[in-house]
């Protein structure tokens, strides 16, 4: 990890039911800043790279649509996992992303979504 001390910020995410992986990602470079994970977690570098690519594509979409909207979060449902990505902070040009991967069969998506929102809000306080 590049910023191991930032791992403490991710500790609350581990309380999400079915938690597998939590990462803070530099959106501009795709670099993993810090991560916490359980035993069955996907590779942090790969998951982070995918999350950064997703956000970049959506930012490009936003740029093309030019509606003035801001990306709030991305929720992806796979057969066994949820991938949840949320920009940290209220910057229209988010520098840092939070990625949480959770076991789909053990996670309440609405609760997890709320937890992520609260977690990101706590980062900014």
């Amino acid at each position: 990890m590049i910023l191991p001390e930032a791992g403490e910020l991710l500790t609350p995410a581990m309380e999400i039911d079915g938690f597998r992986l939590g990462c803070l990602i530099d959106a501009s470079t795709g670099m993993v800043l810090a991560s916490v994970q359980n035993q069955d977690a996907p590779a942090p570098a790969t998951a982070a790279a995918g999350a950064a690519d997703l956000v970049n594509v959506l930012t490009l979409l936003n740029g093309k649509l030019a509606t003035g909207e801001i990306l709030e979060d991305v929720m992806i449902t796979l057969s066994d996992s949820f991938f949840m990505v949320r920009p940290v902070g209220h910057d229209p040009d988010p520098r840092i992303l939070l990625l949480v991967v959770a076991d789909r069969h053990r996670t309440n998506l609405a609760m997890a979504h709320r937890s992520l929102r609260d977690l990101c809000a706590s980062f900014s306080s």
Binding site: E5, L9, G89, I96, S124, S125
Partner: peptide, 17 residues
């Protein structure tokens, strides 16, 4: 190397890194 408690601190540490 103290715990980063806010996005501001992370971003600050990221500048040098």
């Amino acid at each position: 190397l103290v715990p980063a408690r806010s996005v501001g601190r992370i971003t600050g540490a990221l500048v040098l890194t």
